[in-house]
Amino acid sequence: MKWLTIALALVSPSQAYIRFGCGTISIQRLDPVVEPGKLPSSHVHQIVGGNAFNASMTGDIGNKATCTTCSFSEDFSNYWTAVLYFKARNGSYHRVPQYPNALLGNLEGGMTIYYLQQDFNSNGKNKITAFPPGFRMTVGSPTSAGNSKNPGLRYTCLKDVMTRGGETNDFPKQPCPAGIMAIHHFPACWDGKNLDSPNHQDHMYNTVKGSFQNAGPCPASHPVRMPQVAYETMWNTTMFNDKSLWPADGSQPFVWSFDDTKGYGTHGDYLFGWKGDALQRAMDSTSLISNNLKTQSVAEANKCKIKNTVQEPIDGCKLLSQK
């Protein structure tokens, strides 16, 4: 399982985080957190994780899923974001494909997932409490029209697949040689009571500083330190780098599936689904490489799929968003 060994080798000596890949399990208009039960949801999403994903999800997801696209086979959580499209000069839309992080093997699309305890170098002094069954949250908002004030929501114009740094809070203005990486850092301070809240954010408090820096301390209103979840999604925009296809005024041509051409509305959803106490064991371990988390091969992860319940084309022609 060379690909997983490489990924885990990036963990620093103090073992402050786990980092792993999850392949795509579905691309469709479903959102069981923000729009539960709605078929279809307002815009198309790319989803990774367990096969219990559907329009209405309640209870202990870790006991309902039977397979996962994630490298840790006990992680049946679901992670999702909007989908990126290219709007051509002729007005047509084309879905931008994803590709896995270079260090995570030949997963089908998907994202790189992080669970950080403090940062890359320290576990910190506080106990890290794993999310309980039924927990869910979001970060960001599709209605954000101005500059993102959340430093955890950023983009990187990739010079190559290993590029890190140079983050911006809106879409890159020029063609990116190796694509665009979208970055989502979730808050890690919990009120200790609510598994969700009406806006899916108030039960958490955001002390994120971005760029994998140490998050700030938790306030008294949200005293429970949880793992800081982060996503990295690699969008392969290279096939659209011909500027003769871009808008005539030279403006950048990429747009989220909820019709955001600036990038400020980027957002992510998280629904906890680790099996039993697997995540807590990982957070309690002083050596995350040897914490007995079960792994699976890329081939096994790629086998895990669900059937689409929303039947519609997703690859182009028009933007898949309901106004």
Rank of each mutant, 00 (worst) to 15 (best):
C218S: 04
H184M: 14
V161Q: 14
Q322F: 15
L279P: 07
N150E: 03
E312I: 05
S12H: 07
P40D: 07
P142N: 04
L116H: 00
F53S: 00
V44Y: 01
M181D: 02
M204Y: 00
W246S: 04
T58C: 03
G110E: 07
K149S: 07
D277E: 15
Q296C: 07
G37E: 10
D31N: 09
G152V: 08
P313V: 09
K127Q: 03
L293T: 00
L10Q: 13
P227Q: 09
A230S: 14
A188Y: 13
C304W: 03
Q98L: 13
A182S: 10
A65W: 08
D259K: 01
K307Y: 10
Y79A: 11
R164N: 12
R281W: 12
K262A: 02
H184A: 12
H94Q: 11
M137C: 08
I27G: 06
T163F: 09
L4G: 08
R164M: 11
P132K: 03
N292K: 13
L288I: 11
T237S: 08
N214P: 03
T163V: 10
A215L: 11
S321V: 15
A130I: 08
F254E: 01
T112Y: 08
K307Q: 12
K262D: 03
N126L: 11
L293I: 02
A52M: 12
L103M: 14
L319A: 00
G152L: 11
A52C: 15
S251H: 01
Q322E: 15
H43S: 05
M283S: 01
S221C: 14
G250N: 04
N78A: 04
D242F: 07
Y17I: 03
I18N: 07
D202K: 10
K243N: 05
S12W: 04
K323W: 10
